[in-house]
Design a protein around this nucleic acid. Structure first.
Lengths: 148, 148
DNA sequence: AATCTTCTTGCAATGCTTTTGCATGTAGGC
DNA sequence: GCCTACATGCAAAAGCATTGCAAGAAGATT
């Protein structure tokens, strides 16, 4: 009896992803990537530690993993305004820099990735280009449907 | 010999400002407001404590002052992207603040009202409306021209 | 397969910002 | 001048971010 080949292949893909990014493939890193794939919203370091608690990785290891993955470009870091760093898997079409906007519910605090939403800015002549050099993050705040 | 009347008048104006906002006029609060008037950039709590070190106010007092002043609407709180709260004197034309997007430079912390800029969100069908009930604030983060 | 080098992990500890409890002090109203 | 609610000072805790160091493991080399 062999293990189910599909899962093995999947994990191998993650291992390759790490190595291609110049990082060694280790158990914590694979677990982190794997967990990110099951989540649609950015995770804080604390949330990640809690989510992987059963694996008993050291919290500092996971912290450094997040930093390393970010440096390697596999993960991006977002700041939704509550003074806690959050991380999410980066879009794979890396070259287009199409990081998606995030929505934060000001009541329940839930964070949603608006992966499908395109944001178009239409400035009055000169008003935008004289101020803004580069936009790196778009944040929408408001009330989510569940808090309506 | 009397004290210079102009300075007294200026401080009285700050005291009135506090009382009109429903706060008691105390030495730390007046000092905080006064210091904010000399600064154009948002200040963190730590920076404020350091700046007013010679007055020997308690750090917790200054912290609570910032919170109180924010609740009273005299200062606003920003998160520039380094996960440290910063505060700045709020513009006195209070009512106009809400409808236009804001741009925060993650390097210098300057906040710009993009009053002329319209933001259009084009969602994939259902992806936005199933999550977002109402958008109250649009925040763009990035690098401003002066920091380029 | 054994070895070696370099990167990574685990553990412990630290720093910094934010936040709160409580006794004392005082601003502003009467 | 007195009173009461609000504000301060002091102390300490909570929380997230960050780092030093020795032991361990990944990947290259032989």
């Amino acid at each position: 009896m062999k293990k189910a080949p599909s899962k093995t292949t999947h994990l191998d893909a993650l291992r390759d992803l790490l190595r291609e990014a110049g990082l060694r493939s280790t158990a914590p890193r694979v677990a982190v990537l794997q967990h990110f794939q099951t989540r649609r919203r950015p995770l804080s370091h604390g949330e990640l530690v809690e989510a992987l608690a059963d694996r008993e990785f050291d919290a500092a290891t996971l912290y450094r993993n997040l930093i390393d993955l970010e440096s390697a470009g596999l993960v991006s870091r977002v700041n939704v305004g509550d003074n806690v760093w959050r991380f999410e898997l980066r879009d794979q079409d890396t070259e287009t820099q199409s990081e998606h906007p995030h929505f934060v519910c000001v009541e329940c605090g839930e964070i949603t990735c608006l992966a499908q939403v395109r944001v178009k800015l239409t400035p009055a002549p000169g008003s935008l280009k004289s101020v803004v050099n580069h936009v790196s993050e778009i944040l929408l705040k408001g009330q989510c449907m569940r808090c309506a």
